[in-house]
Amino acid sequence: MMQSSMLSDNFGRRRVNKGRGYFWLYLVIAIVFLVLEALGNSVPSKVRSYANDIAAPILTVLEQPIRATQDGLERLAGVSDIYLENQNLREENERLRQWRETALQLNRENEQLRSILKVPGREVPTAATGRVVGSSGGAFEQSVVINVGHNDGVRRNAPVIDDGGIVGRIIEVGYLSSRVLLLTDVNSHIPVKLERTGDLAIIEGTNELFLEVKYLPPTVRLEVGDRFLTSGHGGAFPPDLPMAEVLSVTLDKVTIRATSSISSLDYVRVMNYQPKVPEDELIDPEDQLEPVTQPSEIGAQTPNAETEGGANGT
């Protein structure tokens, strides 16, 4: 009995000593990465990209049972509402048919006017469609990992959208995955315009669900339902993309929320849009593989234009 107790004590001590050794090893590695990050070394960023490439397929496999269970529960919960929903859909389809005819007529007129005035279109194609497979939302960063990367045509700083509007932009690109800085991140500053009046402003993230508007002219009075669209200033995002809407207005506070589904992202689209790169980024060694903006495009930029800021942006 005594011998068994001694063996158990020795085994316990070995486990404690081994655990302490791992702790100090991880602590030293973490300190080394923090020092490299502070010195501006690119090694931590590359390690994160490789880690995202490794984790993305694993997370995709692990989420399948969870999503299957959620889909099954949603089907069961929605059976009782199918009849009423069908009735509403029939009425809505009838209204949509009427609007469709009006939209087609307006579209034909718009195309004719564009052709006469020789106005270029603003449509931006999609580079890739990906699924959110990981999130690192917290007190210091709001970002997600999607399962498309360099092999799918994704490029750094490309805008990311969903059905509701702007989600964010690409800040890290791996071969199989990419990291998206959400517009709710505190480092996100995006030039916008008020859709109702055309007044310019800046939308900033707060690391929370709601956003903050800055530099809006004091004479402008916001109303519930007002929408903010991207202004296109600075070239970080294409113009006229939905971004945020006003939820409530009081004497001392205005509540603004993103039009995209930030809190429940699933599928997102990466736009095939190359932001205009400032001159000081053209010689960045990490961007040597990225297409370089032509001198004529650089000269066309406004020197004092505001651009979206971020952890890896300008």
Rank of each mutant, 00 (worst) to 15 (best):
D9G: 04
N10M: 14
V16C: 08
F23W: 04
V28C: 11
A30M: 06
V35C: 13
L39K: 15
L39F: 13
R48S: 02
R48Q: 05
A51Y: 14
A56S: 15
V61I: 11
Q64M: 06
P65C: 14
Q70E: 08
R75K: 13
R75Q: 14
G78S: 03
Y83P: 07
E85P: 00
L89F: 02
E92P: 07
L96Y: 09
R97A: 15
W99S: 04
W99F: 03
N110D: 02
Q112Y: 14
L117M: 15
L117T: 10
V119N: 01
G121H: 08
T126D: 05
V133L: 00
G137S: 11
F140W: 08
E141M: 13
V144T: 02
V144K: 00
N147E: 06
I166D: 02
I170G: 00
L176E: 13
S177Y: 03
S178R: 02
N187G: 14
S188I: 03
R196V: 07
T206G: 10
L209V: 14
L216K: 01
R221D: 01
L222C: 03
R227F: 06
F228T: 01
T230R: 05
H233K: 03
G235I: 04
A236W: 04
P238W: 11
L247K: 15
D252Q: 04
D252H: 02
T255W: 06
I256L: 10
M271W: 12
E279T: 09
D284V: 07
Q288E: 11
P291S: 13
T293N: 10
I298T: 09
Q301K: 03
T314V: 09
